[in-house]
Computed example of a mutant assay.
Amino acid sequence: MKFCDECGSMMHSDGETWECRSCGYTEARDRDQEGKMTTTQGQERSEIVDVSDAEDRGLPTTTVVCPNCGNDTAHWYMQQIRSADESETRFLVCTECEHKWREDDH
């Protein structure tokens, strides 16, 4: 992949030249340089795995009592839900019933 020296857009090959479709800049192709470019063509694709529950996402656990079922273990994660100058909120997800609550909900 080659990028335009003038505007930074992706260049497209057109015969013996590279052409920028954004600004019109053209440049002669250098076949030796093109041989050194990295390509994804021919590489194997990785398998996409659906991980829907918290344990498979690798979330850390903590000891806390679930207000829904009384289980004493929950996964937790932090999320910014207010403005940037406020601290993050810790969310908990029960490892048994998957009930979700915020740490300050008590």
Results as ranks from 00 to 15, higher is better:
residue 2 K to N: 12
residue 3 F to G: 08
residue 4 C to T: 10
residue 5 D to C: 05
residue 6 E to A: 14
residue 7 C to W: 01
residue 8 G to A: 13
residue 8 G to F: 10
residue 13 S to N: 12
residue 16 E to C: 01
residue 16 E to H: 13
residue 18 W to V: 07
residue 25 Y to C: 00
residue 28 A to L: 12
residue 28 A to M: 04
residue 31 R to S: 14
residue 32 D to H: 04
residue 33 Q to V: 15
residue 34 E to H: 00
residue 35 G to Y: 00
residue 36 K to F: 12
residue 36 K to P: 00
residue 37 M to Y: 14
residue 39 T to L: 04
residue 40 T to Y: 06
residue 40 T to K: 13
residue 45 R to I: 10
residue 46 S to W: 03
residue 49 V to D: 10
residue 49 V to E: 03
residue 50 D to N: 07
residue 52 S to G: 03
residue 53 D to R: 01
residue 53 D to K: 06
residue 53 D to F: 00
residue 59 L to Q: 03
residue 60 P to K: 10
residue 60 P to A: 00
residue 60 P to V: 05
residue 61 T to R: 05
residue 62 T to C: 08
residue 63 T to N: 07
residue 63 T to H: 05
residue 64 V to E: 05
residue 65 V to S: 11
residue 65 V to C: 03
residue 65 V to Y: 02
residue 69 C to M: 07
residue 70 G to Y: 08
residue 70 G to S: 07
residue 72 D to C: 05
residue 72 D to M: 02
residue 73 T to I: 04
residue 73 T to D: 11
residue 74 A to Y: 02
residue 74 A to C: 05
residue 75 H to P: 07
residue 76 W to I: 00
residue 76 W to Q: 08
residue 80 Q to L: 09
residue 81 I to E: 03
residue 81 I to H: 10
residue 85 D to Y: 10
residue 85 D to L: 03
residue 87 S to P: 13
residue 89 T to A: 06
residue 93 V to Q: 03
residue 96 E to R: 11
residue 98 E to L: 13
residue 99 H to Q: 11
residue 99 H to E: 12
residue 100 K to R: 13
residue 100 K to P: 04
residue 102 R to C: 02
residue 103 E to Q: 13
residue 103 E to G: 06
residue 103 E to M: 03
residue 105 D to M: 08
residue 105 D to G: 08
residue 106 H to S: 13
